[in-house]
Each structure stands twice: as structure tokens, then as C-alpha cells.
Computed example of a mutant assay.
Amino acid sequence: MKKASFFLFLLLLSIIPLYKLLFHKDYEVYVVRKMPLVKAVYATGYVKTENEVEVKAKVSGYVVRIFKDTGDEVRKGEVLAFIENKPLEKEIERVKTEIENLKEKIRKGSPFRKSYEERIKAQEERIKILEEKLKRRKKLYERELISRESYLELERKYKAELSTLRALKSDYEESVREVRRKLRTLKKRLEELESKLFEHYVRSPVDGVILKRNVEEGDYVNTFMETKPLFIVGKKGEVKTILEVDEEYGGLVKERQKVYIYVEALKGKVFEGKVVKVYRFVDKGRKTFEVEVRADYGSDILSGTTVEANIILSEKEGIAVPEEAIEENKVKVLKEGKIFEKDVVLGERYGNLVEVLRGLEEGDKVVLR
């Protein structure tokens, strides 16, 4: 970053010449005038869209679909691109198919259910016939027309068929429960797979507009090595300016200070802004800290545009003379054709000018050499 000390900020203020030099044969004369005395810090930086977000891939793979391009408006969560994963997609399809097959298996009227229901119905019919037969045999036994063994034999057969029916119903219910258990497991597995596939859809994290697209269909992205974002998304029309200021001015730059910003890309226009945030962190490599500035550029500025700026630390009206006119707090003044020495009280330095607090008045002619 270009180093710059405090300087007289004349160009940006677009003021008239601040002093007049009169040339004599043996010396130059500086005519004292009141002028704006400005202290400023020089900085460079760039324009950045408000809430600008870099969108990077969360998984590696080939980009097979791009849904949005530079300039397109997007909503939060909207899909910008898709990164292929064929094995995962095939596994999702396999699990979906298995889920559908299991659902079909236990639906009402399915072959699986009908097979069990028909067997149960047939068993119930056999039991009903045996129950009627057992009632008749019991009457015969009570009248001692048949033997006890004959009655007990039919009773044992009846109880055995009842046991078979209970086992058949229990087996049916357990089979249905097992299918439902498998369905729950598969649905959980499907959720896990679809959650993984969700990561393959590159989505916008905010509402805004695509400021830049850095990817093409067919590109391979590697999350371990990729540093460039696939997309940059930001709010349309809302921008902020980030300035990099030398660390030596860290205690001087404050919020609400006026800033004049020069934008070469906009035909050298100068814009007025204001410091809204000072980031109290110094980049050790660059030895600078960042300052956020708000300025109204209109609709012509692009995100990433470079700028130069002057942060105004103080400004006032006063008298200043070239430093070459001063020697040990004295200046030489030309009056009525004669040169006199005058004591002066000096203030701060503004570039090659030094403020004079007392000792000179407007119109005085100071000898430079």
C-alpha cells in the first residue's frame, strides 16, 4: 500500500489557488491569504457489495448443472449448481425402490396380505367345523353313546387347530411388524443419503444477485484444494468501501470522519463518504488495518472497483506559509519596498506549508528567498 503522510488536501476540495507568488528580480514573495487547512490520511481500497458472500462447494466432484449466471437474482436457499455423485444417486434410487416394494407388500389387498388372510380364513373354517362336530360328540358322550376316548381325541384335535390359528395370526402380525421395522430403517437410511446429496446442490446462502460466477459445467471442484469460490452473491445496489490504512495512523482514524474517494473507473469522479467502522486488527504482512466507509456512488459502481481515498482528520480555515519562508520562528516581510523580520507563532504542518497562529495577517507579503 502506498505510504502517505498528512498533506494539504487541495485537489479534492476543488478550491481556488490558496496563495499567490510575486516574482521579483532577486526573490519571490508569497502573499498571505486565509485558506482551508486540512489534515488527511491517504488510503487505497475497493468497493464491495453489502453482505457479499463467497459460495464454495462443500463436496468434491464434477459440476454437471449450473442454474444461475452472473446478474441473476436469487433467493436464500435457491440452487445455483449441482455436483455429480453417481454412486450416491444410485444408492438413493435402490433404497427408494426397496421402500416402495415393502410398502406394496403390506398394503391392503396385496398378495402378501391375501396369502396370510386366506390361510387364516381357511383355518377359521376348519375350526368352526370342528367346533360344531365337538358339540355333537359331547352330547353323544354325555348320553354314553360314544366312548370317552373318542370325545377327547376330537377335543385334542380342536385345541391343536386353535393353536395353529393363533400361531398363524401371530406369524402374520410379526411379518407385518418386521416389514414396518425395515421400512423405518430404510427411511432413516434414505434421509441420511438425501442429506449427503443435499450437499451436492450448491445453494445461495442469502437473498441477492449473482455478482460473479467462477465455474463452468464439466469443471471438477476439489474442496481440499479449491480456494476460489464458485459464486459470489451480494445485495444489488448496496455497497460499502473497504480502505486499507497504514498501521501508524491507527489512533487517528475514527468513526464519522469525512472521506473523499477518488474512483478512476468512473472517469475520475470524487465522492464524499463517512467512516462507519474501524477494524482494530492489523494485518502483520501488509502492516495495515481496514476501515469501512459508506458513500453514495449511484448505480454505476461495480463490486471490486479499486479506489483511492483521503480520510479527513481535521479541517479549518487559517493562515499558512511555505516552510522555506521560516527560519527560527521568524519570517521576512516585504512592506513599502523594504524587508523586515517578524516573529511568528507556528502551528501544525500541512505538507510543505506551516500554519501561522500569530504574527501575520492577510495581505502580508512574505519573502521566500
Rank of each mutant, 00 (worst) to 15 (best):
E272V: 05
K3V: 06
V263K: 06
V32W: 06
E217N: 04
E341T: 05
D300G: 08
R75V: 10
F9G: 09
A325D: 13
V331Y: 07
V282F: 09
E174C: 04
I129L: 14
L368K: 08
Q123L: 14
K182Y: 04
H24Y: 10
S314L: 13
S147T: 15
P111M: 01
E73L: 09
F340E: 09
E191F: 11
D69W: 07
R137P: 05
E194H: 02
T305F: 07
K128S: 08
R294K: 13
E226D: 12
R294Y: 02
M1A: 11
N310S: 12
L134Y: 13
V206E: 04
G298V: 01
E73G: 12
Y27T: 06
K169N: 09
S147G: 15
L360G: 06
V263R: 07
E100C: 14
L12R: 11
D300M: 07
A81T: 02
D283L: 03
N329K: 15
L154S: 12
D343W: 02
K240M: 02
D26W: 03
V53P: 10
I319L: 12
R181Q: 14
S175Q: 06
A4P: 11
G251W: 02
R369C: 03
L186P: 15
V270T: 04
R180M: 09
E132A: 10
G318E: 09
G77T: 05
L8K: 05
K316A: 09
S163I: 14
V202Q: 00
L186G: 14
E174W: 07
L334W: 13
R349H: 03
A122D: 13
G45Y: 00
V356S: 03
L13S: 14
K335N: 12
A167W: 12
L162N: 15
R136I: 08
V276M: 05
E91F: 04
R75G: 13
E315S: 15
K269N: 06
Y262P: 02
K287M: 01
E144N: 15
V32G: 08
D219M: 04
Y151M: 14
E199I: 00
H200T: 00
V331C: 11
K267V: 00
G285L: 04
V63Q: 05
V263I: 11
F271H: 07
F340V: 04
L186F: 09
L18G: 06
L37H: 14
K196D: 00
V179D: 05
K139F: 08
V275K: 06
L230C: 02
D69A: 10
E362V: 07
G234P: 06
R65Y: 08
E52R: 08
F82I: 00
V233C: 03
L11E: 14
E194D: 01
D207V: 00
L168F: 12
K56C: 00
P205A: 00
E348T: 01
T306N: 12
K187V: 08
V291D: 07
K338T: 01
I16Q: 15
T164R: 15
E142H: 14
L22A: 03
V321Q: 09
E91D: 07
G347P: 09
R184I: 13
V179H: 05
G285I: 00
K169A: 04
T49P: 15
K2M: 06
E244V: 00
E323Q: 14
H200C: 01
I16N: 10
Y42R: 02
R136N: 11
V55L: 05
V233Q: 04
S170A: 12
E161W: 11
E98S: 08
K139I: 05
